[in-house]
């Protein structure tokens, strides 16, 4: 078995391995068939010219060279990093604030918790359609409510300055899920810590800064990495907001291609231009980007993640 790191296995080890094998076999098969093989196969495809039909012909690094000189590729990369750089920190703050609110001693807090969590399980495609109405500059609630406090009309989905931020706002509807995870982390903080800090005269803000925050850093780390991985694969809202593929191959993805996210461009290369080779090269670059970003966050976290000694 692949999972045997030692050469000398005791009889009991061997028996346990044999007993466990049928249980984990589905995962092992699925991992090879639906994850590992596709990754290796797309690495191969990225060095070929392939339309999806017939044979893939090797072209060396031509696909990567093509991408290196494609302004739309860089545009999509920039859009995606811009979105991720905005959505992840905002999402983190929103989730923590929601968790702190959900942790208040209010009798009917379960109702509020449910209401805040509910949007995060609704289908993203449906929420996107709802946002088209909600953010409509003419009849949407958002601009109307903002106009009551004197904010001029914002063309959320028509102005390239605002389109990505609209998707960031949309993503916040899913903050209820991470908020519940933070809530569990908040509840795991021993109450005595707060009590003794209060006796020492620490205010709410200092208690949060010096007790709560350090103790939830492992969850913050998880949220940052997972949020980043989700961020770089943003696709569905952009695809729906620009009206799918109804405009044919020539249409731009949102005003000034401002919603042309990386995966959107990958999708277009693969399934509209039938250029599986270039799309595979993009897939591999995305894979590397997500690995690099995760490693950077992991390294950086050494400076601030606080692991309990116990």
């Amino acid at each position: 078995m692949i999972a045997a790191p030692r050469l000398h296995l005791s009889k009991a080890d061997r028996r346990n391995l044999r007993t466990a094998a049928p249980f984990i076999l589905p995962w092992v098969i699925g991992f090879f068939a639906f994850t590992l093989y596709p990754i290796v196969y797309s690495l191969y495809l990225s060095f070929t010219s392939y339309s999806g039909f017939g044979n893939a012909t090797p072209v060396g690094f031509a696909n990567y060279q093509h991408l290196a000189s494609d302004p739309l590729f860089f545009k999509s990369l920039w859009n995606t990093l811009y979105y991720t750089g905005l959505a992840v920190p905002i999402g983190l703050v929103v989730a923590i604030v929601l968790a702190l609110a959900m942790n208040q001693k209010v009798r009917e807090v379960a109702i509020y918790r449910a209401a805040i969590y509910l949007p995060s399980i609704l289908p993203l495609f449906a929420l996107t359609f709802i946002f088209i109405v909600l953010l409509n500059p003419r009849f949407g609630f958002v601009n109307y409510l903002l106009s009551l406090v004197g904010v001029p009309t914002i063309n959320w989905l028509g102005d390239p300055k605002w389109t990505k931020f609209s998707v960031v706002l949309l993503a916040q509807l899913g903050a209820g899920g991470p908020a519940l995870i933070f809530l569990a982390a908040l509840r795991a903080v021993p109450g005595e810590l707060y009590e003794s800090a209060s006796l020492d005269g620490a205010g709410a803000l200092r208690r949060f800064r010096h007790i709560t925050l350090p103790l939830i850093t492992p969850v913050i780390l998880y949220d940052l990495i997972y949020g980043t991985i989700l961020g770089v694969q943003i696709f569905t809202p952009a695809f729906i907001l620009v009206g799918g593929t109804s405009g044919g191959a020539a249409y731009t993805a949102g005003p000034d291609n401002s919603l042309l996210f990386y995966v959107f461009y990958l999708y277009k290369e693969a399934f509209q231009y039938s250029d599986m080779g270039i799309a595979s090269a993009m897939a591999w670059i995305l894979f590397l980007i997500s690995v690099v970003l995760s490693v950077i966050i992991m390294r950086w976290s050494r400076f601030w993640v606080h692991y309990e000694v116990s």
């Binding site: 093989y37 990754i39 495809l45 999806g52 991985i229 990958l266 999708y267 693969a270 599986m276």
Partner: peptide
């Protein structure tokens, strides 16, 4: 594998 973005796999999966 949680941290592998699904879109990384779509081209190859489609072909498979």
């Amino acid at each position: 594998t949680i941290f592998i973005p699904f879109p990384v796999l779509i081209v190859a999966l489609f072909d498979i």
